[in-house]
Amino acid sequence: MATIINLLVGGPTANYPADLTAIPGDWVGADRGALRLVKRGIQPVMVVGDFDSIDEAELQTVKQALAGTIIVKPDQDHTDTQLAVKSIFEQLNPTAVHIYGATGGRLDHLLANLWLVLDPVFRQWAPQIKLIDKQNSVQFFLPGEYEIQKEADKKYLAFVPMMPMHLTLSDEKYQLKAAHNDYPISWASNEFSGDTGHFSFDAGVLAVIQSKDDQVSD
């Protein structure tokens, strides 16, 4: 049976999906993400971080609501998100980890979150990791042939080779045949031709993004 662990990290709340409490599955909080879970009435099964972004009183609030383990980051060699992802896979053994709060705000944090799967330590888990915000979902793939399902609320589809590869898009609106890249590139603004799409590639790590426009007034 599939086991999904949701991880909330410290990105801007404006990028969250509408209601975190409606998302099924257990939750883990990384640093300030742990406090934000507790304030929404969500009891985390694990919290991770050096907790330098919350004060002592807030940390005590988190500890009182905690249903499981607290892991204090021992050094600055890893980000809170990296330590949380590693701890989740090693201790909770989920089928998938869905990460929220990983986009928006500081660009250095965004890049660290996107590039996490390139680290050999984390690459083994790349196909199980998904980044989600109110406009986007990002999945990661290792070399092979794949079929993906269109998300009902998303219009756009992007393929982002993060390392050198030959990429084939066989039945999307805009197709490729063994297109080679030497550096990261975003094949953006593609679309599904139906409810599924097929693609294949031979090396590296590929990010696939489903997205929609932000509904904001001018």
Results as ranks from 00 to 15, higher is better:
2 A>F: 00
4 I>L: 13
5 I>S: 05
6 N>W: 00
7 L>K: 13
8 L>S: 12
8 L>C: 11
10 G>C: 13
11 G>P: 04
12 P>Q: 09
13 T>L: 11
16 Y>R: 09
17 P>A: 00
17 P>V: 05
21 T>H: 01
21 T>F: 00
21 T>I: 04
24 P>M: 00
25 G>W: 07
34 A>I: 05
36 R>N: 15
36 R>M: 14
37 L>R: 05
38 V>K: 09
39 K>L: 14
41 G>N: 03
41 G>Q: 01
42 I>F: 01
43 Q>K: 14
44 P>D: 05
48 V>T: 10
51 F>V: 06
51 F>G: 10
51 F>L: 04
53 S>C: 02
55 D>F: 11
56 E>G: 07
59 L>G: 12
59 L>F: 14
60 Q>N: 09
62 V>M: 03
62 V>L: 01
67 A>L: 11
68 G>F: 03
73 K>P: 04
74 P>W: 05
75 D>M: 02
77 D>N: 15
78 H>F: 14
78 H>I: 04
79 T>N: 07
79 T>F: 07
80 D>F: 04
82 Q>S: 15
82 Q>E: 15
82 Q>M: 13
85 V>C: 07
88 I>D: 07
91 Q>F: 01
92 L>K: 11
94 P>K: 01
98 H>T: 02
100 Y>I: 08
100 Y>L: 11
100 Y>S: 10
100 Y>C: 09
102 A>D: 01
102 A>P: 02
104 G>Y: 06
104 G>A: 07
106 R>A: 06
107 L>C: 05
107 L>R: 10
108 D>K: 13
112 A>G: 15
113 N>S: 09
115 W>S: 11
115 W>T: 13
116 L>P: 04
122 F>H: 12
125 W>E: 15
126 A>I: 07
128 Q>K: 15
128 Q>R: 15
128 Q>Y: 06
130 K>D: 00
130 K>I: 05
132 I>D: 05
132 I>T: 12
134 K>T: 14
136 N>T: 14
141 F>T: 00
142 L>Y: 05
144 G>R: 08
145 E>R: 12
146 Y>K: 05
147 E>Y: 01
150 K>E: 06
155 K>C: 00
158 A>Q: 00
160 V>R: 00
160 V>M: 15
160 V>A: 14
161 P>N: 04
165 M>T: 13
166 H>K: 14
167 L>S: 02
172 E>I: 04
172 E>Q: 13
174 Y>S: 07
176 L>V: 03
180 H>R: 08
183 Y>D: 06
184 P>V: 05
187 W>N: 15
187 W>T: 15
188 A>C: 10
188 A>G: 12
191 E>P: 01
193 S>L: 12
196 T>Q: 10
196 T>E: 09
196 T>I: 10
197 G>K: 00
201 F>G: 11
201 F>N: 09
203 A>P: 12
204 G>Q: 10
208 V>G: 08
210 Q>D: 10
212 K>T: 15
212 K>G: 14
213 D>H: 09
213 D>K: 08
216 V>H: 12
